[in-house]
Design a protein around this nucleic acid. Structure first.
Lengths: 114, 114
DNA sequence: ACATACTATTTAGCGTTGCTAAGTAGCTGT
DNA sequence: ACAGCTACTTAGCAACGCTAAATAGTATGT
């Protein structure tokens, strides 16, 4: 199967990132990798795609990010750890319902027997 | 449930229109209505959304349109009847497979149990 | 010292495409 | 005349995922 990308992802990426963070906090690069493996080869998000999503979600207060320091710190470039905010968890639930609704409606149309 | 619109539809509208025409040829306005009723209140496509899709699909030779004349004609404004082209039927099949793939992958991520 | 490679983040600019909003036009009913 | 429905057209907008390149820290190899 070919890659899922471009327009097909529009409007669903936010939910994907929120859902990923619902499994546990993580930094951008890591989220990218988690999505990559969850995508079973069908997803190939690049940095230029993912990071702007994180900035958007943080600006909307759905996730909170902070630079790794002290205890957790390790060597290498600085990392920004993101986790779901209260609003984010609520929002995720809403988006999950919308997802089911979306697939049901659109699926019913696209897969209608000829 | 709220309306499905905007970005969520991106990349799926073409498949929806092809699938609609797979049920039988029809003109733009009619396709809009068929989608509306298939959408069970969740879809509210406007002309400015649908017609450009038809032009795009026709330019891509996935559908063929011709102005209604003679036998089929009736009173009122002229109507352009579209039907699936051979390529279109092939393309629809491909898009249906992609849709299943898409929902499986993205659904697996969005709906992952916390 | 220099190159390569991997982790990690940032950002400018682009292209697709669905939406807004308005217009044209023919027909019917009041 | 006017409203209202069918039917099509189109200019311009805005969101957002993608391309591509830059910056920076660490590790390894020559």
């Amino acid at each position: 199967m070919d890659k899922i990308s471009g327009n097909a992802l529009r409007g669903h990426l936010d939910a994907m990132v929120l859902a990923t963070l619902a499994q546990g906090e993580g930094h951008g690069f890591e989220i990218m990798q988690r999505l990559g493996s969850a995508g079973r080869g069908a997803l190939e998000l690049k940095e230029g795609t993912l990071y702007p999503v994180l900035y958007r979600l943080e600006a909307a207060k759905l996730i909170v990010g902070k630079w790794e320091t002290g205890a957790t710190e390790r060597r290498g470039p600085r990392r920004r750890i993101y986790k779901l905010a209260r609003n984010g968890r609520r929002d995720l639930k809403r988006r999950q319902e919308q997802w089911r609704h979306f697939t049901q409606i659109i699926g019913g149309i696209v897969e209608a027997p000829a």
